[in-house]
Design a protein around this nucleic acid. Structure first.
Length: 564
DNA sequence: CAATTCGGGGGG
DNA sequence: CCCACCCCCCGAATTG
């Protein structure tokens, strides 16, 4: 028996709430509650809370020690439904949805919040919120209409699953921020000093960076600043070496004494600027790193974070991620997830069979189609998923196509749809935005279909398709795989969250195909088992009955850096 | 002077 | 020779 209630926070920390019937309509008058957290805490039988925006409600609940089992995030659902209906980019707030429903003027969305590193979840209590909330009586109308709109999609059951799991992602994002990733500032500082040397009292670069900059200058025989690409290119030119950039792959095979210190400088400079002392000061408090996760932050459904660079933590910095005393980190990584997802969505019999085992996928493929050459098999599979256009990989791709025609046809069709400007969807129905036009700055990064630009670069195009439409084909080709993998990862997270219920263990990190659970040492085995169970559940829930397996490699460690 | 773009690195 | 896909982050340079 699922019990659904709608909730809208009111001023001064209260909330309006109402029970909902099967049709999504209130079955009782709205109750005005003076205390949001108490209103929720007092109703443990509610299995799903329907609210406008998880971020506006849930941090306050967590602060008060209240968790909820499930929610339905109306604005997250609105975003997914709009995209599915081909209206990606229209205002997605509940107020906008209401205006579309009632026929009024549609208010624009408020601008996205910027990163606020120093703040804690507590601050959400006092944060001034833009006036995008709508009264509960209106909110339930939007909800009921959204339920109807689910029914108009090609696969209503999948769309319900998508909005439910996106909502679960919103809960998990808030819970992971509240829990925080265990982070030892002392270890991090020691690491910085070890790598970068001491900082000088007067500021400026730390000792090791200054030394490397001197070595580079010495090698060129004049003062060169290694952090200025133009300066470096000029210096190499004067040494008789022509470069088009100072990218690593371009300089690493150059024979010049400046190369070694230059590469070393770049590596350390990156750590200094992105994960150095000031990052530590901004982002780590009380032994925890608390990034703000944004589920569905990318078009493919992958998450992003708002500041902090949580999804780009350099490997070497992971040495600072250390479990509390007596606790462990269970680090789990979905092995070769994207090819397995391609097998599940394409239903290619031979590919599904290969993906029905837990072992090394590329090895299995190479045994069947590449006479044992694992590297060739891997290049071919990645080429199919990314849309490789040149190089030796094309030959391997042809071999792959002969062996697994249905799988390759699936991504080929997605590419063709993209080139022709059609909508492309993930398995659960997350929909790729249509080709953007160049006047819309919001859509930067999405390959455009702009005839003027295509003709301006005419000498670089061939055949009937513009460079842009081919770029878009690669984008949609990859979208169906990466996005369906994100669908699965969301279900996995939700399943794992339920499996961990009742344990002290906490989900503390998620990065596309990797999760970290922080738990007491004696729970580690149960957590490892929970991940296995969740993987099985997520595979079945997302893709239905399929022989494809989604194995995890798990490691129980005290330090994240020891996980692989 | 503030906002935007570029270049190069990090993650998957 | 690099590949190709999705991102974030920083400092410097450039632009408004």
């Amino acid at each position: 028996m699922t019990e659904r209630w709608a909730l809208a926070p009111t001023e001064h920390g209260g909330a309006d709430i109402a029970p909902l019937g099967e049709d999504g309509r209130p079955t009782a008058p709205v109750s005005h509650e003076p205390d949001l957290a108490e209103a929720v805490r007092a109703r443990p039988d509610v299995t799903r809370w329907v609210w406008r925006d998880t971020h506006a409600v849930y941090p306050r609940l967590l602060e008060a020690g209240v968790r909820v089992e499930r929610c339905y995030d109306i604005e997250a659902a609105e975003t997914l439904l709009l995209a599915h209906e081909g209206h990606h980019g229209e205002p997605r707030s509940a107020a906008a949805a209401l205006a579309r429903l009632r026929g009024g003027p549609v208010p624009p969305d408020p601008p996205p919040r910027v990163a606020e590193p120093g703040r804690h979840s507590m601050d959400a209590l006092f944060e001034p919120r833009p006036p995008v909330g709508v009264p509960l009586s209106d909110l339930v109308d939007v909800y009921a209409d959204q339920q109807r709109r689910h029914g108009t999609t090609a696969h209503p059951d999948r769309m319900h699953l998508l909005t439910a799991s996106e909502s679960a992602g919103m809960l998990i994002a808030a819970e992971m921020r509240a829990a925080g990733l265990p982070w030892r500032a002392d270890t991090h500082r020691a690491l910085l000093t070890e790598l970068l040397g001491e900082r000088y009292a007067g500021g400026g670069e730390p000792r090791r960076l200054a030394e490397l900059a001197d070595e580079v200058s010495e090698a060129f025989g004049r003062r060169v600043r290694p952090d200025l690409p133009a300066d470096v290119v000029k210096a190499f030119a004067q040494a008789g070496i022509k470069l088009t950039s100072t990218r690593r792959w371009e300089i690493e095979n150059v024979d010049h004494p400046a190369v070694r210190p230059l590469i070393e400088y770049k590596k350390l400079y990156r750590i200094y600027t992105a994960h150095g002392w000031s990052w530590l000061q901004d982002w780590v408090h009380d032994g925890r790193f608390r990034p703000e996760y944004l589920p569905g932050g990318t078009v493919s459904g992958r998450w992003t974070t708002n500041g902090g660079g949580a999804l780009q933590i350099p490997k070497v910095v992971r040495r600072a991620v250390i479990a509390d005393p007596g606790w462990r980190l269970v680090v789990a990584d979905a092995a070769q997830m994207e090819p397995r997802v391609l097998a599940a969505i394409s239903r290619d019999p031979a590919f599904m069979e290969v993906c029905g085992q837990d072992g090394d996928l590329y090895k299995a493929i190479s045994d069947r189609a590449f006479s044992g050459d694992r590297d060739q098999a891997k290049i071919a599979v990645l080429g199919a998923i990314y849309g490789q256009t040149s190089g030796d990989g094309l030959k391997n791709l042809a071999l792959l196509r002969r062996r697994f025609p249905q799988a390759v046809a699936y991504v080929d069709e997605a590419a063709r749809a993209g080139e022709e400007g059609r909508l492309v969807r993930t398995w659960l129905g997350r929909t790729c935005p249509p080709a953007a036009n160049s006047t819309d700055p919001e859509e930067a990064g999405i390959p455009q279909d702009d005839p003027e630009q295509a003709s301006a670069e005419g000498q670089f195009t061939y055949g009937y398709a513009s460079s842009n439409s081919r770029a878009r084909g690669r984008f949609t080709r990859n979208f169906v795989v990466q996005g369906s993998a994100a669908d699965w990862a969301l279900l996995l997270l939700a399943a794992l969250r339920r499996e961990l219920n009742g344990m002290a263990a906490e989900l503390v990190f998620f990065q596309h195909d990797e999760v970290i659970v922080h738990c007491p040492q004696d729970e580690a085995a149960r957590v490892t088992e929970a991940i296995r169970t969740a993987s099985l559940l997520a595979g079945r829930l997302t893709f239905g009955e399929t022989p494809v397996r989604f194995p995890f490699t798990t490691a129980t460690v005290e330090c994240y850096a020891d996980a692989k």
